[in-house]
Amino acid sequence: MLSGFGAQLAEHIPRLRRYARALTGERSAADDLVQDALERACNKRHLWRRDSDLRAWLLSIMHNVFVNQLRGRRPPPVLSLAGEGEQAWAGFASESTSELATHSTPADRLTIRDLDAALARLPDEQREVLLLVALEQLSYEETAKTLGIPIGTVMSRLSRARERLRVLMAGGGSAPAATTLRVVR
């Protein structure tokens, strides 16, 4: 049995998992992230105002956990493949595409795989903004609040993320080498 807060929290877990998976690109890392965020939410439940949006609050907690984890885990900037702040995550795309989107046609799967691979190559801060807007469908204001950044920054990151994805999915552009060069940790 769950208390009222726990029951409300539980409703959001599937969506948090979806976002975490898209963000980290890897199943167990995503669930680690969700678990850490849930633990923090439970510990800080007194900070949540009952009349406010629980989901937005949870997403902002998850963002903080994500940023803190990256700080601890981010590999040294050995290779900059395609631009400042970008990193290649070894194995990022292969796992999620093989498990997800199983109901799609082969042509769809190609697009999906392209997108997943391209997503992995976005800088973290651009990927976060894009996923909050496009996947979580937060408004720009909510996205800015969740990430604690000005709305102008949301718009510029969104713009850069989408354009980079478009170029990557068009099969070339600025970072063709990234498919063969990988940072091995």
Binding site: L2, G6, L9, A10, I13, P14, R15, R17, R18, Y19, R21, A22, D31, V34, Q35, L38, C42, S96, T97, L100, A101, T102, H103, S104, D108, T111, I112, L115, D116, L119, L130, L131, A134, L135
Partner: peptide, 20 residues
């Protein structure tokens, strides 16, 4: 495409360790 890629996660059973 993003939603089609990641929406299947919503239907997955939540792993035991994430249950409250």
């Amino acid at each position: 495409t993003l939603r089609r890629l990641f929406d299947p996660l919503l239907d997955e059973a939540v792993p035991e360790r994430l249950r409250l």
